[in-house]
Design a protein around this nucleic acid. Structure first.
Lengths: 238, 238
DNA sequence: GGAGGTCTGTACGGCAGCGCACATTGGGGG
DNA sequence: CCCCCAATGTGCGCTGCCGTACAGACCTCC
């Protein structure tokens, strides 16, 4: 543990997959940071100063329309990195990254990151694989948004979040979930109510607990499994 | 023109952006191919044999659910390449690539492509930039699927296709469009009818003509402009 | 322990898109 | 040239989600 008790870089799966010599070089430059709920990592078309590797935090990638309505296109946790535009070459993206679940991360300055990215094929390979997994997540979100019910999408969202969380409890109001899914709060309330009736989750004022994960997996649409399978397949063996 | 009159590689924007020496090496390996409407370029989780650079053809990336319903997540034309999984490292994707508009393309075998990708930073850079643009297209599709009407999405789809087409006419039935958008055929019919009434398009049995492009751009949701702007921004200067 | 604000439950009308069934039209092949 | 099938138009009732409004319940902070 570091002096600030912010965990180990190895908790992030991308960092964990790097060879020891690369991590040796990188470690001193990895700055541990706590991320608070609602904190904005980057705004649309805004150049980043750092690239973030979450360990226990979860970050939501979402687009906000001109009229203020928003929808999530993907989430990033210990499986990934926030700021792929930096190594894809575009530097910015039209969307926003917001902390969905408070927790910790390690970050690298742009210059340090770019230097290592050019130099290290292992880092290169790991990051491109992750980008492909994220691409699958986004495209499946598109499909799911088109074809499935709010309840199914809530299940998908809960499972994707749970996969990236160290515990069974999400600190999250139904209103925030509604913003992420791009639906009404009442729709989320109703769906959550049904899931609780079915004994799959339990919730109270801003806290949701996953009670019956296998049950949730039965209730979700196939979109979740597609994303999960692809994410596992593309995850480096580390 | 080649002997088969299949156009020039330079009609594809990615190939056009490559330095002369790289194109010199690549040219003999670029095989011109005609792509027929409905032709499948790759199936889900199927390893590719070639990477395709469309010139006048348009390819649709779509996911088909277990029950047969489908939805499009992105389209690729002269602005891009079919088979990004090859250089992202995953080799396959869970979706399908189908020719949406017949036309021509150039293709490269996997081995030849990989060799050049490793070797050439210019190719590398161009392809990663394109991948980021595609990522934006997919994520914006997710948002649009969630928040906008069928009519707006039809406008978006028509404009995205028109951008990648050498003429103002799309050879495309409303039924096929419905499959792409993941909605009912009747919904597309109704929306197309309204657009025709408004003088924006004209259509007859499998042919749609863009009549008033500025009008379409006024009718479309902001999603189109986001994708277009990002696509232009990330397009190499060539 | 009370007050206030946040979070969740409920109710209503309205609309967009779905699923189905069937009529109509057009155009290409025989 | 005509026939037939593919493509489009139309009309139901139904469902899921939206927009709005308000009531109740729970936590937290004073």
């Amino acid at each position: 543990m570091t002096s600030e008790d912010l965990g180990e870089p190895g908790q992030n799966r991308l960092l964990a997959a790097l060879p020891a010599d690369v991590m040796g070089r990188l470690q001193p430059a990895l700055e541990p940071v706590g991320l608070a709920l609602g904190q904005v990592i980057y705004e649309p078309d805004e150049a980043l100063s750092h690239v973030y590797f979450p360990t226990t935090a979860i970050v939501s990638l979402l687009y906000t329309m001109e009229d203020g309505t928003s929808a999530e296109m993907g989430i990033v946790g210990c499986d990934g990195v926030v700021g792929i535009a930096v190594f894809m070459g575009g530097d910015t993206t039209p969307n926003r990254a917001v902390v969905q679940s408070a927790g910790d991360a390690f970050r690298l300055t742009l210059t340090r990151f770019r230097e290592e990215f050019r130099r290290t094929t292992a880092l290169h390979r790991v990051l491109l694989l992750y980008t492909q997994a994220l691409l699958t997540q986004m495209s499946q979100t598109a499909v799911c948004n088109r074809l499935h019910s709010v309840e199914q999408q809530l299940c998908r969202w809960l499972l994707l979040s749970h996969d990236r969380l160290p515990s069974d409890e999400l600190v999250m109001t139904q209103e925030l979930i509604a913003n992420m899914l791009g639906v009404r709060r009442e729709g989320v309330s109703a769906a959550a109510h049904r899931l609780q009736e079915a004994g799959l989750i339990r919730y109270r004022r801003g806290h949701i607990t996953i009670v019956d994960r296998p049950g949730l997996e039965r209730a979700v649409c196939e979109c979740y499994q597609v994303v999960r399978t692809e994410c596992d397949r593309l995850s480096p063996p580390g």
